[in-house]
Design a protein around this nucleic acid. Structure first.
Lengths: 342, 342
DNA sequence: CCCAGCACTGAGAGCGCTCCCATGAATACC
DNA sequence: GGTATTCATGGGAGCGCTCTCAGTGCTGGG
């Protein structure tokens, strides 16, 4: 038995079986849960595992089961800044946690541009991972097509045109509903001239929030709409424009907290009182922003980590083929959080 | 030949060999570079690979070569915020790029606390990855010990007590040297009362910068030292304290750009002119900060992405066993970037 | 013209594991 | 008490690949 002499290399199942005095098959059963093995044998194997410090060889297992126990999270370079986005962090955290709960690992795939597509396609084709998770933010992204071509189970984070066209399931917050709730809240406060500061035009989440705004403000003056790019700076600028165009506005729904923070700054600089003169509602409920605004920001909360977890859950159902058919999308609810600004 | 009928499953080397009319061994040689195979056969195999869309099965390869082609990047939960740190982002980017250049993949391991240690240890022991990369920032971290116990090749990012004790190679910026250069520059400007705003006391990088400051200001008044925690807010506060204690100070070296930005704000609020009255030097050369300060911030540049790449290079040498002995540490140079603030 | 020497190629073992199937023991049924 | 049935266990094939080693066809020297 060479296993005993080659003490340097890691013990195999064979060694465990030999030590426990059972066959490799039985040892395997115990290692994988031990169903259908009698208690005394289970114990003997468990003990052998313990004593030998046995850890299953992942490659060997993958080779036969055709399951790698890993999931790729694809990050496209155009949005790499997203990486330092608290948003993204929370989502990845959720993904990581849920993956751990499913005994899977997270492989980070950083796509640096079309030149990388080949490499990624080969990687996805190589059976390294069981499925992928991707964020399709911009509509012009080539990533969805790439993933579709690799024919690997995938779930998207965020609604996207390409994703829907390719029938890839996605998870998203109820952006439209959340926006609607925000604007309705402003209406219920008796506000009549409610403006909107929108996010980037190529971002579905931003567009959905615009739609939600229009659901309530069906015949709003176009002058009450202003365009930002989700940065604080752009929010400040958009607010200034709005005030110039419609000095009579009495409320503003801002498409994200960062821009809302900028809007608040402009209002303060112009001596406009919040919420007395103008009520402000944001979106995201970002801890770092919400904590520091003055007055405290009323905003639409979304469960980002939960979204990440849901992506994994959906993917796992896709992989198992159990739990019934996989829905085309899952929309997580949002909730208005009332603070001082509206 | 069942391979042909099971069109659904991916082609194997066997299928490629059959199609090219060669043996599996020869096909394997071609796929792995094709040395020692005559040109016509190489072409035939290449063509078969192309036509069949063959992608090597990773698990099978790993099983025999004992190399997974993956490297784990370990992120410890106590520092999870670091994830949204531009710093960390750049470092991971460098790691990702260099890993790609070495045909390796990045597996993200998110450690959520001591409860996770078992899971991680088992993972590292399971041959999933060839080596690990970890960031040991705080001195009280248990992570280094955990990794050491797993006996897996590792490189640390950042100097740490534990890392040095366990003789794990590390890569770090020349924090001390950079700080020295910053302070020397202030001296060369004729400044005499040079203060320092330090970073967190449990962070080696911050301590090294303090040491660099002291290297030049050997008998500095302790009143010229102030403590921050690397946030903008803390920089503003520390600057205020310094001005109260030593109104005659004419320069300040701040341990990072974020705090420098805060310090600049305090100085502006107090009507202190920069650099005329007080010269300010930061550390990091963070694009997002440096771009927006007024006046433009003079700071110490460090090559974060390069540090990440170096970590990978070092690890690869550790794995290959080639390229000579692996140094205990690699320190990347820093460089003072002169702008308007000093 | 024969054989040593060389360059290529193929046969086959084996990496560590799971899973199918056969075997044997124990229990149930009539 | 004999056979059908269940249940636990072991034997062994085989996942797709790499790698050693033997074999094949050449060339060149004697």
């Amino acid at each position: 038995m060479p296993e005993q002499t080659t003490g340097a290399s890691r013990p195999t199942l064979e060694a465990v079986a030999a030590r426990a005095g059972v066959s490799r098959a039985t040892a395997s059963r115990v290692v994988n849960g031990g169903v259908g093995v009698r208690a005394p044998l289970v114990d003997k194997v468990r003990q052998a595992v313990e004593e030998l410090g046995y850890v299953p060889n992942h490659a060997a297992r993958t080779l036969v089961t055709r399951r790698s126990g890993a999931v790729a999270v694809i990050i496209a370079e155009p949005e790499f800044r997203i990486f330092s986005d608290p948003f993204f962090e929370q989502q990845v955290r959720g993904i990581s946690r849920e993956l751990t709960a499913h005994d899977s690992q997270l492989v980070l795939l950083w796509v640096e541009g079309p030149g990388d597509h080949d490499r990624i396609a080969r990687y996805l084709g190589g059976g390294h991972v069981d499925g992928t998770l991707a964020f399709s933010l911009h509509n012009d992204d080539e990533l969805p097509a790439l993933i579709a071509r690799a024919r690997i189970p995938t779930v998207f984070g965020g609604r996207s045109e390409a994703g829907q066209r390719l029938a890839v399931p996605y998870v998203d917050s109820d952006n439209r509903g959340g926006a609607r709730e925000a604007v309705r809240h402003l209406v219920s406060l008796g506000r009549r001239h409610i403006a909107h500061i929108a996010g980037p035009r190529d971002l579905m989440a931003a567009l959905d929030r615009v739609d939600g705004y229009h659901d309530v403000m069906m015949d709003a003056d176009p002058a009450l709409m202003s365009q930002g790019d989700f940065t604080e700076e752009s929010g400040a600028r958009a607010m200034a424009e709005l005030l110039d165009r419609r000095p009579d506005l009495d409320a503003v729904f801002v498409a994200n907290d960062l821009m809302a923070s900028g809007a608040l700054r402009t209002l303060r600089e112009r001596g406009v009182r919040v919420p007395e003169d103008v009520a402000v509602v944001g979106f995201d409920d970002l801890a770092s922003v919400v904590r520091s605004t003055d007055p405290a920001l009323t905003t639409v909360h979304q469960d980002i980590e939960g979204t990440g977890r849901l992506m994994v859950k959906l993917l796992m159902r896709l992989l198992d083929g159990t739990g019934g058919p996989v829905p085309a999308s899952v929309i997580t609810p949002t909730a208005l959080v009332r603070r001082a600004s509206a």
